[in-house]
Amino acid sequence: MRNLLGFLSRNSFFLFFLLLEGFAVLLLIQNNRFQRSEFINSSNSASGSFYQMVNNATKYFDLVYINNQLSNENAQLRNHLTTSKIEIFGKNFIINDTIYQQSYTFTEATIINNTVNKANNYITLNKGTLAGVKEGMGVIGPQGIIGIVKTVSTRFSSVMSVLHTQSIISAKLKDQRHFGSLVWDSKDYQYGQLIDIPKHVQIMLGDTIVSSGFSSIFPTGISLATITEIEKPEGNNFYNITVKFINDFKKIEKVYVVKNVLRTEQDKLEEQMEGDKDD
């Protein structure tokens, strides 16, 4: 017993170090499983409102850029209005609204904290459960996908950015319709990787890739990135493709949170299939 006490008192500094370090590791592991407790991440109300304050002061600096971005988007949307189209078939137009059912709804939100230089980047938004934001919803910017909502508090939400080592976005080639996955290797925030595209597909530099819509998180056909580098590795049936994001992740401010109205129905059906396979 005395030996044990002697050992403890001799190594007390080292043991205390191990204790604190162990506690830090615990925090880290919890954080890595994305189960961060409410009060300890950046969507907690203390640091959330702090960042809101900082953002209130700094948002004026980017106004010109954001105005341009928004007016570009307006112009794009205006192109889709019926008033900017001419009738090709004269008066023989049949409009039947029962064909289209609303599938995705969008909520506007503002980014109040953002990083791009970490290996795992998170974005904080100023909308939370009060605005109808829930875990697992997608977030899109003016030009492409931003990420997926990970944790929500009443007035803020924390988004796992596309610039995250564990982010996988289902994507397809705009013209060919072959689908793969868009991932990020944590090196340059402007470039991502498109994987799982088989070698027999004809692709070209500059081709656009868009969201596939398979994941039921994002609508189909949102432009994501353009191909900047193609490699054909030996002994492998797939390309190594480097793509450049259309979004400039450093400059986004206004985003939209996407809600898929039909998601529960799709997930339920797919779960049923998974269940059948297990039996």
Partner: peptide
């Protein structure tokens, strides 16, 4: 860590 969302 609290302010960088990099707990731990």
């Amino acid at each position: 860590d609290l302010f960088s969302s990099t707990m731990g």
